[in-house]
Each structure stands twice: as C-alpha cells, then as structure tokens.
C-alpha cells in the first residue's frame, strides 16, 4: 500500500513540474500533500499527519492561490 501511494505521489509531482498552468500545479500540489498525509498516517505517525494536513492542504494552498491572483497565471516560456 505504501509503494502504491508513493507511485501516486510521483505521478502527481511530475505533472506539477511540467504543466504550464500554475493553478493546475497548485491543485496537483494539494493532492500531493493530501496523499503524503495519508502516507504518514499509514506509517503510524498521526501527529505528523495532522500537521501535514493542516499546513500542506489548507494554508499553503491558500497562500499559493493568493499569490497567483496577484501575479500571472500562465508560466512564461522565457
């Protein structure tokens, strides 16, 4: 089960790196933090999973979207 979750995280991470739309990157990044919280949970570390769920899925997503609102949404080629 751990290996399958790591493969999911790897696929989402590759998509996050190579997509041009930054909002799609933020959505994939939120899914990554969700799955890594689940991974910590499976590995018997519920306190780390609580912190990851609060900071990764909630606060960092809001901060990234807030920054995209004040800058460009598309990544430039140059």
């Amino acid at each position: 089960m751990t290996v399958i979750l790591l493969l999911f995280i790897l696929g989402l991470g590759i998509y996050t790196l190579f997509t041009k739309d930054l909002l799609h990157s933020v959505i994939a990044l939120s899914a990554i933090s969700l799955l890594s919280a689940m991974l910590f949970y499976i590995l018997h570390a519920p306190d780390v999973a609580i912190t990851e769920a609060a900071v990764g899925a909630g606060v960092s997503t809001i901060i990234f979207v807030w920054i995209i609102r004040h800058t460009d949404r598309k990544e430039s080629d140059s």
Partner: peptide, 27 residues
C-alpha cells in the same frame, strides 16, 4: 481515538483550500 483526529483536522483545513481555489475561479 488519536487516529480519527487526523480525519477531523483534514476535513476542516482541506475545505479552506477548496474555498480558496473556488473563490479564484469565481473572480
């Protein structure tokens, strides 16, 4: 019981993240 707290905390903060993205789309 500690293991259920993770689900509670994620339910609250994940919803905040979705609200942020949905508000961006609305604007």
């Amino acid at each position: 019981a500690l293991y259920l707290d993770v689900a509670l905390v994620y339910d609250i903060f994940g919803f905040l993240g979705f609200l942020g993205i949905a508000r961006f789309l609305k604007d």
